[in-house]
Design a binder for these strands. Structure first.
Lengths: 229, 229
DNA sequence: TTGCTTTTCAAACATTTGTATGAAACTATC
DNA sequence: GATAGTTTCATACAAATGTTTGAAAAGCAA
């Protein structure tokens, strides 16, 4: 078996170009030029352009999903089989937020690619995203265990809003930065995660005390804290 | 001056096709065929394909923005110059949610077009969305008056999260429906607006009592209510 | 009608695009 | 080192697409 350095070079070049210029503006010829390989190599190694994009996206998605499930599992073990709702939401929104935001990730091609994939929406990526429902069901199940007796629809709305805040922050971070004239610190990823988790849990428990205080103890700037009850 | 029925026919056909099949799958030839006009008519009347898309989107955007500002103005008059935070958030998320969701809007081309524009993201639409910041500043100003002394960043985060929940609900309504197996009622627009407003206000006031109870008094299914403090 | 502007039309343009082909180069196994 | 399988390469293909053109048609004012 030959070294698949051509395959790898194509993947790296494609991810970089898509991240920088978007899916609409990058052609296969751009990619092979960047990767210094022949035009036909893409179809030889991946079958088609769409399959190349799909492979890029599933790779990163699997990464995020694995981190999510790891965090969920850890939280469940910590809680003796039943994770606290805070930790569940944190496991849900933490990985994608950490993966896409933050100053350290500034130059990360993977991060910029995932942001791009969240802004633009091309058919191969949409197809993969549609399969995400099965993955989310695991979180719905954990939430059901954490908040037994709670109306099912409420759980789904809470899950939905948590993803809304996380994804919208990733997708619209430039606009939020511009709107707030820099007052919102998009580099403080931990603080953002706390924010999203806190609001999600508030939405789910509608104001009741959470099962326990939010885990992360301190953040530099004034972020949301629970001061009710 | 001739009747611009050709212009109008193109706009209608384009909006319908884009709404149904997305921006990526619809060509100028599809549009002119649907409108029963000549291919060159698009460039004659609009200059380019992108300008046609832009005109479609600005028309609908202006509609939403006007409704928002009307609601905001009404709320400010009700409050003697200072609108309650609930009403501000409601003015922000109500119009787009009402415009895109609900069973009555099922067949509305405008609604489906705006949903599509929120899912796919093409350059001409992105350009227009970037100008939306000025519009949002008016809401930020109203929020500042409603919650004086509050940290500026907190206000922007609340605004950001409100938009996140509203837009994400519009954009991912099919997925939420599938994930919840129909348990989340996407046709109950008023209930959804209440939900988003309630959570947004909770995020902004982090658990404190709101300036007044949420306006809408009753909804059929069990939705979020404030029971804290 | 005459003359001028606006609008429509068929046709062609000029690229751009992803994909396919068939030969050449390379690699590894016997 | 011959052979079979794999990979690379230059090139061609074929189709789609937004845009342009120049003439014909339609409107309209005098």
């Amino acid at each position: 078996m030959a070294s698949d350095q051509t395959r790898t070079a194509i993947l790296a070049a494609a991810e970089r170009l898509y991240a920088d210029r978007g899916f609409g503006d990058v052609t296969l010829r751009d990619i092979v030029a960047e990767a210094n390989v022949n035009l036909a190599a893409v179809n030889y190694h991946f079958g088609s352009k769409d399959e190349l994009i799909a492979e890029l996206f599933v790779t990163r998605s699997i990464q995020t999903n694995r981190e999510r499930l790891n965090e969920l599992k850890a939280a469940e073990e910590r809680g003796g089989g039943r994770a606290a709702i805070d930790d569940i939401m944190r496991a849900l929104v933490g990985p994608p937020l950490r993966g896409c935001l933050g100053p350290n990730r500034e130059g990360s091609t993977a991060a910029r690619f995932m942001i791009r994939a969240s802004i633009e929406s091309v058919p191969p990526i949409r197809r993969i995203k549609n399969r995400e429902v099965d993955h989310l069901r695991k979180f719905a199940a954990a939430m059901r265990r954490a908040l037994p007796g709670r109306d099912e629809a409420e759980l789904y709305w809470g899950l939905h809003f948590a993803l809304a805040m996380a994804h919208h922050t990733i997708r619209e971070k430039e606009r939020l930065l511009r709107l707030s004239e820099g007052k919102c610190d998009l580099d403080d990823v931990a603080g953002i995660i706390d924010r999203v988790v806190t609001v999600s849990v508030m939405a789910l428990t509608h104001g009741e005390a959470p099962s326990k205080p939010v885990v992360r103890p301190m953040v530099a700037h004034g972020r949301l804290t629970r001061q009710d009850l």
